[in-house]
């Protein structure tokens, strides 16, 4: 009872899960895997006008070990795919993946021998952002969708870790 008396109204009841998810969703650390044109629009999202910092995701980390959101932006070729898989595996759990643009999602216009027809064949993808390349607004929308996924995440999911 002393506690309530001391803190007066400064109390909030929530679950640990909700508190953690709230923190997590507002401080996503993206790992940009920008290979082609989408990489340039990704830069535009980071730069002055669109400013991804408004959504707490400006801490771009080029080390997969420090990030929890993989942004696959651009076409992935047969030479690049093993690298992408390695990077995905190096990211710590929990992690989310955005497939940005037509090429990453489906191969786009590049129906050729060397372009992977959609990275989701080989790594899990959470959100697809359409466009060739998507506008910065599109990517921000994708990020908000990821935030909603993070919000719904439950700890019980983690117990399934292999």
């Amino acid at each position: 009872m002393g506690l309530i008396k001391d803190t007066k109204s400064n109390i909030l009841t929530t679950t640990v899960e909700a508190a953690v998810n709230w923190g997590r969703k507002n401080s996503l650390w993206p790992m940009p895997f920008g290979t082609a044109c989408c990489g340039i629009e990704l830069m535009a999202v980071l730069a002055s006008r669109s400013d991804i910092a408004r959504f707490g995701a400006e801490a771009i980390r080029f080390s997969p070990r420090q990030s929890d959101l993989l942004l696959v932006a651009g076409r992935i070729t047969i030479k690049m795919m093993p690298v992408l898989q390695r990077i995905y595996e190096q990211m710590p759990e929990p992690k989310w993946v955005i497939s940005m643009g037509a090429c990453a999602s489906s191969g786009g216009v590049f129906d050729t021998y060397s372009v992977i027809q959609g990275v989701d064949q080989f790594i899990p993808v959470d959100v697809y952002v359409p466009g060739c390349p998507p506008r910065p607004e599109g990517l921000i929308d994708g990020l908000i969708k990821i935030q909603k996924l993070v919000e719904k995440d439950t700890f019980s999911n983690y117990s399934k870790r292999k």
Partner: peptide
């Protein structure tokens, strides 16, 4: 190099002259 080799030149052989502008 070659991590972004996407077969542009092969693709050009299947698209007509105006279609290739997009590539």
């Amino acid at each position: 190099i070659g991590y972004l080799h996407s077969g542009f030149e092969k693709l050009g052989e299947d698209l007509d002259y105006n279609q290739y502008v997009t590539i």
